[in-house]
């Protein structure tokens, strides 16, 4: 197994016209750990996510991903769909993006598109219905069933995703991301809109994904109970720059983080900055 961190951001900068959304951000996410990216609204967290998952091309900087076998990818150079296909990075969205008119099972089948595409011989073998295709399809269904059971949605497998309750949709989206067989799972506010019980179940699910499936997780989250409970490392952003990084315990007591979240007088903030420097 490679010793390099799974994900390393080096001086990532993203400009939209005159606005600098992310400014020379560097951090690493360790292998088989849960790294949380937190910060007040508008800090640039989702922009970082969109850069990592290829929805934005960063203005400058390097996003390096290293697989367990040592294979390296510079993700700012990859085409958007290759970030999932080759670099094995899966993501969920802040506002859920399931395929509402397709069943839960179909959603998970679409997630296995690339593997199934190969098995169907770019459609030809599949069109003829050869046994090798049928076996591949069955194993894809088995994989989908495994994840439906894992997120507790097996009873809803044949229901349209758009008909599921909000919390169920959140879990289905995580299951769909896991069906792509990711090395790194990026979750954008997975606990948003969940009640306390659902949040606890989510924490348990994420911990098990990390330990049982050898998947590293990068997480944006506002729900501090979830962040503090499950994160191995926390990176705090504000105004597009990193203001702190450390274990949840260190972050909790960091005056700069508290200032960023609770807001401070200008002088107070300046005093904190000076004290740090």
């Amino acid at each position: 197994m490679s010793s390099a961190p799974i994900l390393a951001l080096e001086n990532l900068t993203m400009r939209f016209g005159g606005i600098v959304a992310v400014n020379a951000l560097s951090f690493t996410a360790q292998r088989q750990q849960i790294t949380a990216l937190i910060g007040p609204n508008g800090a640039g967290k989702t922009t970082v996510f969109n850069c990592i998952t290829g929805f934005y091309k960063p203005t400058s900087g390097v996003i390096r991903l290293t697989h367990d076998d040592g294979a390296q990818f510079e993700m700012q150079k990859l085409k958007d769909f290759n970030i999932s296909k080759q670099a094995k990075v899966a993501r969920t969205f802040q506002n859920i993006r399931l395929f509402p008119g397709m069943t839960a099972l179909e959603n998970l089948m679409v997630a296995q598109h690339n593997a199934l595409m190969r098995a169907s011989g770019l459609t030809l073998i599949g069109l003829l219905g050869l046994p090798s295709w049928r076996a591949a399809e069955q194993s894809a269904i088995d994989n989908a069933v495994f994840w439906l059971k894992r997120v507790g949605l097996i009873d809803r497998a044949d229901d349209a995703a758009g008909n599921l309750a909000y919390g169920d949709q959140r879990r289905l989206e995580i299951a769909r991301a896991m069906c792509t067989g990711p090395a790194l799972l990026c979750l954008d506010e997975p606990a948003a809109g969940l009640n306390a019980r659902e949040s606890a179940a989510l924490s348990e699910l994420l911990l098990s994904i990390r330990s049982d499936h050898a998947t590293s997780i990068l997480l944006i989250e506002h729900d501090m109970s979830v962040v503090m409970e499950i994160s191995d490392r926390v990176v705090v952003m504000d105004y597009g720059v990193k203001i702190a990084e450390g274990t949840p315990r260190e972050i909790r007591d960091d005056p700069k983080v508290i200032a960023a979240y609770l807001g401070t007088d200008e002088e107070e903030a300046a005093a904190v900055m000076e004290a740090e420097a």
Partner: peptide
């Protein structure tokens, strides 16, 4: 898979890209 990808494309293009 190709047909499911067509329907997925109709449902949500952004999600399709995220799924490779």
């Amino acid at each position: 898979p190709i047909g499911r990808a067509w329907e997925a494309l109709r449902e949500d293009e952004v999600a399709c890209r995220a799924l490779g």
